[in-house]
Design a binder for these strands. Sequence first.
DNA 1: AATCTATCCAACCGCTTTTAA
DNA 2: GTTAAAAGCGGTTGGATAGAT
Length: 316
Amino acid sequence: MAKQSCCHKKKLRRGLWSPEEDEKLMNHIAKYGHGCWSSVPKLAGLERCGKSCRLRWINYLRPDLKRGTFSQEEEDLIIHLHSMLGNKWSQIAAQLPGRTDNEVKNFWNSYIKKRLRERGIDPATHKPLTEAIGAAATTSTCRAVFGDADLIPTTTALAEPPMLDGVKLPLDWPVAGSAAPSSLSGYLQAGCFDMDMDSLLQQQQHCGGIQQAPVVPSASSSSTLTSMADAEYCGTNIAGSNLPWLELGQNTLGKAGHVDSYAGALDELRWSEYFDGAFQAAASQQGALQGQCVYGGGGKDDVAVQFDVHGLSNWC
DNA sequence: AATCTATCCAACCGCTTTTAA
DNA sequence: GTTAAAAGCGGTTGGATAGAT
């Protein structure tokens, strides 16, 4: 007999969330924060398990969520990160401000996989399908279809793959200048983004250092786009940088208005910092914190519901 | 108009990891 | 050091919807 979930055991409500439940949860978190998730449902007056509340907040109610369709840049970044990280959806989502792991995972499974197959690329290995089939018989190693020559301007062979942020990098990880990146985002910047390290250091000095945005609890964290956005904010011409894998998409960075995208990402990150660090302070300012939920199945009759931090109760 | 099929995505499930007692 | 609870994560499911027949 299958093990019953915590919701079953406690005869708690399951399934889709009603607007009333959402409002209760948002009101509670706006006032008290989530604290211990297991105590949230009781305190918020919800007949749900804490796990369900947490998921609802993370995947749907969090005001810093972007929602809407993925941009070409996001799609390309997901493909690239997946080629490096595999199904590490939370790590991939962390590079996409305003996106959740669930959202990225669904997007991958429902859209990107299909697109890659149509393009003759095996989504599991990121290799051409014919090659992937052959390779599968001999090795389980995953390598990016983008090819090192495309991705990486300078390579150095190492005996052991370096680890950055817990991610094992390819053996021929990129070396831009002599300095090794200290983080995955640094890796992306220094190698794949082909940013000259000296320039980067100058930028950092000029801007007082590129700051990692504080990680918002239960929220997507900073890193690549943050750094890129920060660099852009500080005047680095990312449009002039080489982001090779993006050329695989329909729009290259130079054409796609990406600067606006990254500036937007920066705005969102700053906004989420604001949300996290100054939630209570923000609450005293009219319209300081706003978000939107959509009820419905994503169809044309969806009802958009606006809320703000003032009790999150200004439904319209 | 009715039925079938495919697709999307919110939510659940169960496992692993982290944290606190 | 051990244990239990909580949190996090990735895989999977099921319901709603759109499109095809």
